[in-house]
Amino acid sequence: MRTMPNYANPADFLRLVRAAAPVTATITAILFGIGLYLALLDSPPDYQQGETVRIMYLHVPSAWMAMFVYVVMSSAALGTLVWRHPLADATQKAAAPLGAAFTFLCLVTGSLWGKPEWGTWWVWDARLTSVFVLFLIYLGIIALWQVIEDPGKAARLVAVFTLVGAVNIPIIKFSVDWWNTLHQSASVFRMGGPTIAMSMLWPLIFMTFAFTFLFLTLHMLAIRNEILRRRIRRLSMLAASASEAGIPAIFAEPAQ
């Protein structure tokens, strides 16, 4: 009798990915289809910014994803530290590069969106700067992953740094805002303004969901990659110790 699939167990998780990944992939495609149609064709240009407002439909969702992925990473970090579960380690490690990519996309689209008005590619605007610092934190996390060989130890150390980062992000946000107002920079650029016309809200919603589902799909696949990477590492070590002991490695290996 098949026991309830325990998705915390890597083997069950692999079966989940095989089933769920195609589904979320198609949902992502559909959402992107609708979102792009609304964003590019079916919504009016902004009376002030003209066409460049369409960049908002990329910039805002990727900013949202940058934060969302960090939250996912932080909860996985808690999973690693509290329950020490290898799946939490994989979840955490798989999220970091995706988060960095979304943050990078947010910075580039922000720069492209602001260029017409600022005249330069970059302005130390409060919100853009906070996202930039978040990007540095993501790069630090990826670098930390790359330096520590033992996956278990790496996961725990990165988890600590991720949580420390999570605590610091609001502080950074506040101090950057204050820093920005302190040095009242020449051009105060309002990112998308407080009120958005209804017609612009729908594309934004669809694009945000599209980005979110894209992340969910890629994250599942990336977690699977991490599980396989760990298995390869363990099999390699088994191969080494087996040949050391002179017995061929034919013993069964628990599917942990």
């Binding site: 130390w124 610092v133 630090g140 670098a143 820093w179 040095h183 020449a186």
Partner: peptide, 26 residues
């Protein structure tokens, strides 16, 4: 375990923190 990308990241961090000290005036 190799430290290939460390130099560039440290370089980026140093460049990134200067405006916070000097101010956002381009």
């Amino acid at each position: 375990g190799g430290a290939a990308s460390m130099g560039v990241l440290f370089f980026l961090c140093l460049v990134a923190i200067t405006p916070f000290a000097i101010g956002p005036d381009l």
